[in-house]
């Protein structure tokens, strides 16, 4: 009996044999939302993430940035110097200065000369810096979501972060968003 009942069930589970959402023009599949996972704390990668996040929001796409691991201290207030509860967490903050204004480059950092020159060039060519882009992104409604596990690991409190940060969540929320059709981007 069950063997007979199964095949039609399987067909009913897949009502759309044709590829799912397709737009009228060009046929490009469109994701509903954009989800950027910002793992890096490097200046250039953070910058790229801010450009993509603000542009995505400007294009009317719901945009979320999940900030985790080395990406998380970037969203601590610039004025905070040492964060954490125990000596290891404090040492980490001491070695890797938190805040968007204190990002280092992954290459050619040269004790801060690299970032300084990059900012000079950005000013000369009127390219918006990461901090300005962060403000723009927030104004356009980009949601910045901290990783709860990294907060615990680094001993970070919600009051350590800049204004407007979202509710801390875990990996399941991030994967959940991806399965619901968010275009994921890991930086």
């Amino acid at each position: 009996m069950t063997a007979v009942a199964e095949p039609p069930m399987a067909v009913a589970d897949e009502p759309s044999v044709a590829p799912a959402p397709v737009t009228g023009d060009g046929g490009a599949t469109k994701a509903k939302d954009v989800l950027i996972i910002l793992y890096s704390g490097d200046l250039e990668k953070t910058w790229a993430a801010m450009i993509l996040a603000s542009t995505s929001a400007a294009m009317g796409v719901k945009t979320r940035v999940f900030v985790t691991f080395w990406g998380l201290p970037t969203f601590i207030k610039d004025s905070r110097r040492i964060t954490g509860d125990n000596w290891m967490q404090k040492m980490l903050a001491f070695m890797k200065r938190p805040g968007m204004s204190h990002r280092k480059m992954s290459t050619m950092n040269f004790m801060g000369m690299g970032p300084w020159m990059l900012h000079c060039l950005a000013k000369q060519y009127k390219a918006a810096g990461p901090k300005e882009l962060l403000e723009v992104a927030q104004a356009l409604g980009v949601e910045f979501i901290p990783c709860q596990m990294t907060m615990d690991l680094f001993g970070l409190k919600r009051e350590d972060f800049i204004e407007g940060m979202g509710e801390p969540v875990g990996a399941a929320t991030v994967i959940g968003l991806m399965t619901e059709g968010s275009a994921p981007l890991f930086i």
Partner: peptide
Amino acid sequence: LACPMPIVKTAQ
């Protein structure tokens, strides 16, 4: 202005 500010300003 450089990318992405023209788009951002337009959206605003």
